[in-house]
Amino acid sequence: MSVDQATVRRIARLARIAVTDEEVPHLMGELNAMLSFVEQLDEVDVTGVEPMTSVTPMAMKKRADIVTDGGYPETVVANAPMTEDHYFLVPKVVE
């Protein structure tokens, strides 16, 4: 399988990465090089093989559903580019 320029733009949109017109052909070449490299996986017979979900066989650990952390909003927002009253600020999303 290979991708065309329209697909490259669609992927970039899904990934929320702006691409310029000049970048598209270059990216298409690189993505197609990767896709042709992984094509050899089609040779493998995977009938009845479980896809791996956990590399070490272990039961999912659970903890009690109680508050164990928090109470320091100024620390939480300390690295944010824009904040007000302990809220993260973003451009307007609803009219």
Partner: peptide, 18 residues
């Protein structure tokens, strides 16, 4: 660009992300 790190402003939120 919301909770930490560098932000580049945009005309709306998607533009800002991209």
């Amino acid at each position: 660009g919301v909770r930490y790190g560098v932000r580049v402003p945009g005309k709306d939120i998607t533009d800002m992300y991209e």
